[in-house]
Amino acid sequence: MERLIDLLLDYNVRNIALGSAVLGIISGALGCFAVLRRQALVGESVAHAALPGIVLAFMLLSTRAPLVLMLGAALAGWLAMLSVIAIVRLTRIKDDSAFALLLSVFFGGGLVLLTIVQKSGAASQAGLDTYLFGQAAALISEDVITMSSLGIVILTVLLLFWKEFKLLSFDRAFGGSQGFPMLALDILLTALVVMATVVGLKAVGVVLMSAMLVAPAAAARQWTDRLGLMVVLAGLFGALAGVTGAFISTLERGLSTGPAIVVCISLLAVFSLLFAPNRGLLRERLQAHQNRRRLRADLRTLQEPEV
């Protein structure tokens, strides 16, 4: 208990908590759109593809400024996305294969670059490998400020174009018939998903970041039938898992934050899938059971010989 209070007063701990909360809110909120538009693979690919961008940005500019590394990550992620689109358009390779291909190529390239940097022995490279599995403990106030600023931009754009994004996600053709530039909106929303992915990379890591997009959204969908509430809930779930996971990882030396956060959000998602009041599996099973019993009872009444 005493340890917990010490933790909460600690300056580092405040950074960790704030950073994890911000990343949880952003990835949860944007993840809803990624999931509803069946773009979960986008997050997965962008996150993995970000690694070479981070390392290259560090190699070329010899800085670990969070904004620079995030920019490198976003550029690499975006390049991977464009390559996927080009491959699907120009060849007969389907999009799932294209995603898998690009994800592996970029991630592999990133690992190679990372090894080169480590071999070169630059003293300041030490922080880079935390981008693999995330290290919330490595968050400094500069990270948190960058994450929060990007988060505010992302959420503001999301709120501003809420109606348009909803239209895009539900019925693109109808939106187009009303004169909205759906391709531009698609690019904007995808860019927001890419930004949301990039914001969490230092804390969660490139390997597990996509879980932070998918799991809070999947959990939130179980509890509500309204898009607005789903986005708010996903943000809350993401923040809760982010903060809890970050603290768990600080309690044990050498425990990466990404896995801890992902375990937390997965527990939340599994609980929601099983026990949510309307869409939960348990409720569905129960209802199916009751229906069968009622049908059987009806059948017996029908089959009773008439006197």
């Binding site: 909803k166 019925d171 053709a173 898009l227």
Partner: peptide
């Protein structure tokens, strides 16, 4: 549009979907 062209499990209500018909007249952001 064709009814089958959208995901009917999308988290929204009947009234919400019908109001989408006014989005074009409302214009951006409003």
């Amino acid at each position: 549009p064709q009814r089958g062209s959208v995901d009917w499990d999308f988290p929204t209500s009947v009234l919400d979907v019908v109001m989408m018909g006014r989005y074009g007249a409302l214009g951006w952001i409003k």
